[in-house]
């Protein structure tokens, strides 16, 4: 069995909604694959396009902006 591709996903999550939702997923014990690394921002409006490019440059295979 060959090892499948495991992408590294960087997520920028708004403190007030998406980050809270990610907390709620935990409280509800929803299970999902451990491929995502969440970076908390105070609003998705804080995410400069530059950050997204930097994430790809730093090795991310996917970027999620949630807010």
């Amino acid at each position: 069995m060959s090892e499948g591709f495991e992408p590294k996903i960087v997520a920028f999550a708004c403190n007030w909604c998406a980050y809270s939702a990610a907390d709620l997923a935990g409280v509800s014990r929803f299970q999902y694959p451990p491929n995502m690394r969440i970076i908390r921002v105070m609003c998705s409006g804080r995410v400069n396009p530059n950050f997204i490019l930097k994430a790809f440059e730093s090795g991310a295979d996917g970027v999620l902006v949630a807010g």
Binding site: A22, A25, G26, F30, Q31, Y32, P33, P34, N35
Partner: peptide, 18 residues
């Protein structure tokens, strides 16, 4: 670093990945 709500609680069966 959020390693409970956003890690251990959502990867309960994936000790290594978590």
């Amino acid at each position: 670093a959020n390693i409970r709500d956003q890690c251990s609680w959502v990867h309960m069966q994936q000790r290594e990945g978590g």
